[in-house]
């Protein structure tokens, strides 16, 4: 055909696209760097969490200690990496726990419907009305400090929103014609749930899980900062910020700043990736061709 020579490109609505183009590569690079660091660094440089070196305390950032040392002479960079590792572990496991619980509860409530649905959702409302940090503190207080109580605490307090999202999604899918068609075609309840409803909610649930990772990391840090999370000698971002509070007033900024950045940058990167994902699965992006 002879036409293409004359064809011109049209920018659809003149939206600024520059920022959006950079978001994906930047955030994926940040997440990749974080993952590499938390996997590789512990393999290369072991950390003795008990070791202190009081002759070397509160050094400003230098070549030997790029992030400086803290008030008992520990290398801030190394502890940041290890702290991030713990935080990521807690964040990911807790987010997964919360998502599994939330998806199960939400999907069950939505699929069964009726009185069960109403009762379950009232319970969810009751739990949601209590600030979940408070609830989390209550849960960790029942255990000895460690990684797992924090995971349990964060997991058990964060499934509520996922349950709501998944239930709403199931309810909207359940009234679709294609579910009716499946029922009419002889599909059992189980088959409708597993084959038609669940695949429909998984993208939403997955998105909720990814969005929850940064949330869970902050939650872990908050618990540790309050002295209720990990044991105080463990390198965790919350513990480090808590330990460094005193030195900040003396003008030693590095033991606070770097753990703070380690908390902010990865969580922002993960949240940004989740945002890209959300755009991908939202219906208005699905069709590139309007026929």
């Amino acid at each position: 055909m002879s036409i293409p020579a004359a064809l011109r490109r049209r920018t659809p609505r003149g939206k600024p696209t520059a920022g959006r183009g950079l978001r994906l590569p930047l955030s994926s690079c940040a997440v990749a760097a974080v993952l590499l660091a938390v996997v590789l660094v512990p393999l290369l440089v072991p950390l003795d969490e008990q070791a202190v070196d009081l002759t070397d305390k509160l050094h400003a950032p230098s070549l030997a200690h790029p992030f400086g040392t803290d008030d008992v002479g520990r290398d801030v960079l190394l502890r940041c990496v290890y702290g991030l590792r713990v935080s990521l572990l807690v964040g990911v496991v807790a987010a997964l726990t919360a998502t599994v619980i939330g998806t199960a509860v939400g999907a069950a409530a939505g699929a069964v419907g009726g009185r069960t649905d109403r009762m379950v959702m009232r319970v969810v409302d009751v739990f949601s009305s209590v600030p979940h940090l408070l609830l989390g503190i209550f849960i960790v207080a029942m255990f000895r400090p460690g990684v797992w109580p924090v995971v349990i605490s964060v997991g058990l307090t964060h499934w509520l929103s996922t349950a709501r999202i998944v239930r709403a999604e199931v309810l909207s899918l359940r009234s679709r014609d294609f579910v009716d068609a499946a029922v009419s075609g002889g599909a059992s309840r189980w088959r409708v749930g597993v084959r038609h409803l669940l695949p429909g909610v998984l993208p939403q649930a997955g998105l909720a899980a990814v969005l929850m990772v940064p949330h869970a990391i902050w939650h872990e840090s908050a618990l540790s900062f309050l002295g209720l999370g990990l044991p105080t000698h463990r390198a965790s971002l919350g513990n480090m910020i808590q330990d460094a509070r005193g030195t900040l007033l003396a003008g030693d900024w590095w033991p606070t700043l770097f753990p703070g950045l380690f908390l902010i940058v990865p969580t922002l990167a993960i949240a940004s990736l989740a945002g890209v994902w959300r755009e991908r699965i939202s219906p208005r992006r699905r069709s590139e061709l309007m026929l």
């Binding site: 036409i3 293409p4 004359a6 064809l7 011109r8 490109r9 049209r10 920018t11 659809p12 609505r13 590139e288 061709l289 309007m290």
Partner: peptide, 14 residues
């Protein structure tokens, strides 16, 4: 859509 200038970005018009 072409007449209203509302085509998506992957469209070329002649």
């Amino acid at each position: 859509s072409a007449l209203l200038g509302l085509l998506p970005g992957n469209a070329r018009v002649g």
